[in-house]
Design a protein around this nucleic acid. Structure first.
Ligand SMILES: NC(=O)c1ccc[n+]([C@@H]2O[C@H](COP(=O)([O-])OP(=O)(O)OC[C@H]3O[C@@H](n4cnc5c(N)ncnc54)[C@H](O)[C@@H]3O)[C@@H](O)[C@H]2O)c1
Ligand SMILES: NC(=O)c1ccc[n+]([C@@H]2O[C@H](COP(=O)([O-])OP(=O)(O)OC[C@H]3O[C@@H](n4cnc5c(N)ncnc54)[C@H](O)[C@@H]3O)[C@@H](O)[C@H]2O)c1
Lengths: 207, 207
DNA sequence: TTCACGTTGTGATTTTTTTCACATGATTGC
DNA sequence: GCAATCATGTGAAAAAAATCACAACGTGAA
């Protein structure tokens, strides 16, 4: 199967979300220039991206929103069978849990891990929480595909290694730690301080 | 002054953080291949990036860590004179505030805004919080360079417009809303759901 | 002094990503 | 039926980003 870059996937997922909203209020069809305005990507970019997944519109009515959405859905193939583990139930971890709660049952955080006794062996926001020492044991019995790391920076590498040794090769890393990972592992680094610093830089310098 | 891409700035800021750690424990000099291992970027990439800011090492001892750090600092020129405003003091907003508290006084969130009466007109984590209706008035009297948006998605555009009309042209957007912005405004979108979906996609598909 | 080694700086090249620009095709109004 | 209009799909071009690969240099050992 053809390989697709992370950037294309990211944009497809953005179209997907916007299409859902669009269909609630607007007509059944949509043009690349509309998706362009909604996203800020160029319309040529939009058309290229849709080419990638082999969806074809008509030159008269653009794209059928429902069909397009279905095509993207099939392509990304995200279903509730695939769940998520979260390590670190601090400020950030709990905000993340909270967020998932509000977002329907299509994706959910299946299990959480921490070391703080106050946070383990109970259910927080519908998420069963365990001591981090039980990661191997618990992960064996679940169908986790993605691990979220929200522990203090110094523990991030340990947690990543633990995920990987349990066959989880797709991670979200909320810590500033640069993880050392084998090449087959996908990681998305979400680094607030880096983002802020970039924003400060570009606040005073044009791009 | 030469324009630098966002990617280069992002990496420079990563070197910067790693250099600080490195200097605490390791020798006074550092090689591009070490920065490469620490970051995951290629060593040629590292050298190119340092070229961009005109820092030169020696072929014998690589880079002088302290000097290099100083060069990057000068280049990015981030000081405590520039502060940040945060709108939306919910779960996520408070996690962000918390995070900044722990990170020394070099960068701070100067003011917060919300509509919830329980959260306004008091100081939360050292941050003065106001009603969102007072944004114009309050922003006039501060030296805010960057705005963080952590309100519900439906209000994000309003808040962005408000920031921009007050001359703040660098934003962090934590909502999934795609903001419509004039071209001179810098925005970094941090979209958890998008990241997760990408991670799920690549958990099952090689890149 | 001379040589081997390991590293930098960078021109050249390759790869990836985006944009351009236009032929093609569907629709509408007359 | 026909022309005018407007979008799509896409080859080609351009731009951006990353990698290659090697001359040049400084060091230390002999
Ligand atoms: N709060 C934010 O907005 C924010 C923003 C960006 C990045 N971060 C990063 O996210 C991480 C967590 O931030 P936070 O604000 O939630 O911190 P926090 O201290 O509130 O939470 C950390 C949690 O991890 C748990 N923990 C500690 N060591 C552990 C281990 N070895 N295994 C499992 N759990 C462990 C702690 O018990 C705690 O519950 C940090 O690395 C921080 O740099 C946070
Ligand atoms: N919690 C997360 O981890 C998380 C992750 C990703 C994205 N987000 C996004 O961040 C945003 C906030 O998430 P949250 O979990 O903190 O939600 P929340 O409901 O806990 O917080 C929202 C806050 O915004 C305030 N608010 C509402 N309307 C406002 C307005 N017009 N002006 C100013 N303040 C207003 C509310 O009073 C509340 O304090 C949402 O858009 C959400 O999609 C949250």
């Amino acid at each position: 199967m053809k390989k697709v870059s992370s950037k294309v996937v990211e944009r497809l997922l953005i179209y997907r979300r916007l299409l859902r909203l669009y269909m609630q209020t607007d007509g059944p069809n949509i043009y690349s220039h509309q998706l362009s305005r909604m996203t800020g990507f160029s319309s040529a970019q939009v058309r290229r991206d849709l080419m990638e997944i082999g969806y074809f519109g008509s030159s008269a009515h653009g794209y059928d929103a429902e069909e397009l959405l279905k095509s993207i859905d099939e392509f990304v193939n995200i279903s509730e069978d695939f769940s998520i583990a979260l390590v670190g139930l601090g400020q950030l971890g709990r905000a993340i849990l909270d967020y998932f709660q509000g977002h329907g049952p299509n994706l959910r955080i299946e299990v959480g891990f921490d070391i703080n006794p106050q946070k383990i062996d109970r259910v927080i926001q519908g998420c069963r929480c365990f001591h981090v020492d039980r990661m191997d044991e618990v992960l064996k019995n679940t169908n986790i595909l993605v691990g979220i790391i929200a522990v203090p920076a110094t523990n991030a590498q340990d947690i990543a290694d633990r995920f990987i040794s349990n066959g989880i090769n797709s991670l979200l890393n909320y810590t500033p730690t640069r993880l050392q990972l084998p090449p087959h592992v996908f990681v998305e680094n979400i680094d607030l301080m880096n983002s802020i610093e970039k924003a400060i830089f570009f606040a005073r310098r044009p791009r």
